[in-house]
Design a protein around this nucleic acid. Structure first.
Lengths: 226, 226
DNA sequence: TACGTGCCGATACAGTGTATCGATCAATGC
DNA sequence: GCATTGATCGATACACTGTATCGGCACGTA
């Protein structure tokens, strides 16, 4: 077969100059699309058109890559507003929104200390906007809000995934979980819980998040201006 | 070589009757000793003296094993006390204590919906003790406390691990982290943060946890008795 | 041109979760 | 009592993981 008849080999991904940013962006793209378990050094490397070991010039371990991903996400989390209440609320809401856009964040947030530049810049932005607050109150306030957000977001994303996993539509979810809870409650072993689940008002995710956040901010207000 | 000269083979671990409880207890023992990454189906099976695939008669996947571990841990989390404030505080404190005894809990809490019998029994115990509270307030209150605890405990355990990992003593930790922060702050890019870290009072883990919890409970109080 | 040197990445290794399917054993039918 | 069937169990295998190793290559220097 002559050259002319043979098709050219497909374009290889050009060995573009590598750097941490490109690596992290690629990993985030994979994680956004298919979750954290889709992020392996081999897959990231393949997507970049390089061998797996190439990445080890830029990171020392996979954990470092995950740290870099989280720090990159922190770049999207910026509090705005005036006054400590607005600032903390906006910190919480924008963290939550980042986790909605990058569900894998829910798996990583709070899992390791965040000391990267964007995380620190985020802390700086928050603290700088709390300038009216007593210096000794700043850290506890921010820590409490962050703790609440991390936990709330984890539960929210976990619930979302469970729904999604039980068949793509919400029909099956109710078909699978509803009966289980019905049967469980029917045993009579959880009467108080059954009553609450059956009779109390059910808030959606947004309202649940905001209500908890309001609790917290109200409580902070009571202490800060005591 | 005659039989008499040949040593008997070493005692095999007797193929003790298997059940989920033994499997879960073994997995928890491994996780307590060496962390979650020490829990592999092979290691659990080996510790039980059986082949890996044997476990699949009792669980459908590793995730199910982790779910069972979390549910087993919930058996140790029981709120006590009278009045919603005492109950919620005790829920928070006993959850935190369980995570101190089983650090791997910090990795799993909030990661998947908890619908196991012990988790439900825990919910039942909490809700049953909140009988004075308006029915529509119960879930938001409990959800908020749980969210806070999950986040707070994750951060606390993460910090503890970081210290422990940077050399067994605390010397190296300060030798490694202190200078990094010093250098970072010395750049002048995080002035407000630097001021707080350097000049504000530093609470230990216990006080930080309780302070955040107090914020939250105060805020709940404001709403519940409005 | 010859030599030393540093680095890059192919290969290899030990480990993972789990699908597969042949061997084994109990129960059943004659 | 024996043959056959059926179910069950677990050894083997597979695809994949993170990362250590080290041969070979390119490059800078003598």
């Amino acid at each position: 077969m002559l050259v002319w008849e043979r098709p050219e080999p497909p374009d290889r991904p050009v060995p573009a100059p590598l750097n941490r940013e490109r690596i992290v962006r690629t990993a985030i793209r994979l994680a956004d699309a298919d979750g954290l378990e889709a992020v392996s050094l081999r897959k990231v490397a393949t997507a970049l058109g390089v061998g797996p070991m190439r990445l080890y010039s830029y990171i020392a371990s996979k954990e470092e890559l995950l740290d870099l991903m989280v720090d990159a996400a922190y770049a999207e989390i910026r509090p705005v507003g005036d006054g400590w209440r607005e600032v903390l609320r906006s910190l919480a809401e924008s963290t939550r929104q980042a986790a909605h856009e990058h569900e894998w964040l829910a798996d990583l947030l709070g899992g390791r200390p965040q000391l990267g530049p964007h995380a620190l810049a985020n802390g700086e932005a928050v603290v700088a906007r709390l300038d009216g607050v007593d210096l000794d109150d700043v850290m506890p306030m921010v820590a409490a809000v962050n703790a609440y957000v991390i936990g709330a977001v984890r539960r929210e994303i976990a619930a979302r995934r469970a729904e999604r996993a039980s068949g793509m539509d919400e029909r099956r979810w109710q078909a699978a979980l509803g009966p289980y809870l019905e049967r469980t409650f029917a045993t009579g072993r959880f009467p108080a819980l059954a009553t609450v689940v059956r009779d109390a008002a059910h808030l959606d995710a947004d309202h649940t998040f905001r209500m908890g956040l309001d609790f917290l901010l109200d409580g902070i207000e009571a202490r800060v201006s005591r």
